[in-house]
């Protein structure tokens, strides 16, 4: 198998595959923890188990930020333009989500929460693209 022009078949890239798979799991964990925190209580939170849930969401978010940067670096090193662009868009949307999440935590303005959710979905689509195109 070798490159055959626009979106032709190319070789497998194991580093991108592994880091994208890890990033995907972390993003899904962050989503489930975040939506459970959102649906169970009004902010600011009061119950201690809600605090644990929100801490889980924050931990997954920090890990997904680190994973996004790692995925971007690995896609940059892969010498493939398609993977590089997917990794770049992925890390940009994770950055937007992280910035809006921090703004939400500071202001409790739900617009930031909504923007965080919207940018999450584009990030997870790009991560899935990295998995599928690196196989």
């Amino acid at each position: 198998m070798e490159s055959k022009g626009i979106l032709g078949k190319v070789n497998r890239n194991t580093p991108v595959l592994i880091s994208a798979a890890i990033e995907e799991i972390i993003l899904m964990g962050a989503f489930v923890a975040g939506i459970t925190a959102l649906l169970n209580d009004q902010f600011p939170i009061t119950a201690s188990w809600m605090a644990a849930l929100l801490s889980a969401h924050l931990s997954f978010a920090v890990l997904s930020g680190l994973g996004g940067v790692l995925l971007f670096v690995v896609t940059y090193l892969s010498d493939r333009k398609d993977l590089f662009y997917l990794g770049l868009i992925n890390v940009i949307f994770i950055g937007i989500a992280a910035a809006n999440g921090l703004m939400f935590y500071a202001t409790y303005n739900y617009d930031y929460s909504y923007t965080m959710a919207i940018s999450f979905i584009f990030a997870i689509i790009c991560t899935s693209g990295c998995i599928a195109w690196s196989i």
Binding site: E24, M28, F31, I35, T36, L39, I124, I125, I131, A132
Partner: peptide
């Protein structure tokens, strides 16, 4: 109850992962 909305969200996130995997895999293989 929140548990059903959480089920909706969990099913959604799996759906979007599988759909985008299908999209990106199908244009390459």
């Amino acid at each position: 109850e929140p548990i059903y909305a959480i089920g909706m969200g969990t099913g959604f996130v799996f759906t979007i992962v599988f759909t985008s995997l299908i999209l990106f895999y199908a244009v390459r293989h």
